[in-house]
């Protein structure tokens, strides 16, 4: 019986611990990769937008100076 109560207490402590893990963050600034909750602040939205833009720019093909010269400098 005592063992069962002890196990139930462990279960209770475990539950409290896990619920702490899923608690919503209170800070509005969750960083560029952090999750957002509720209404977005301007800073959060900007961070998320910048992160997306950075990813898009990484996908941009690198161009050599020679390629750029061909494309641009002939414009005079």
């Amino acid at each position: 019986m005592k063992l069962a109560i002890a196990l139930l207490l462990v279960a209770l402590v475990f539950t409290v611990y896990i619920s702490g893990c899923v608690q919503e963050p209170t800070s509005p600034d969750t960083g560029p990769t952090g999750p957002t909750t509720g209404a977005l602040t301007e800073a959060q939205a900007e961070q998320q937008a910048l992160q997306t833009l950075d990813q898009e720019m990484e996908a941009l093909e690198e161009m050599s100076l020679e390629e750029l010269e061909n494309e641009l400098l002939q414009q005079g």
Binding site: V10, I18, A45
Partner: peptide, 30 residues
């Protein structure tokens, strides 16, 4: 019963954590 309770709580909390995480992740679009 106690062991089953622990297992259920652990699984439930894990699923809840995943769902909350998915809901909180902002979607972005150009």
């Amino acid at each position: 019963l106690a062991v089953a309770l622990i297992a259920v709580l652990a699984i439930g909390a894990s699923v809840m954590a995943q769902q909350v995480g998915a809901q909180n992740q902002a979607r972005t679009m150009i």
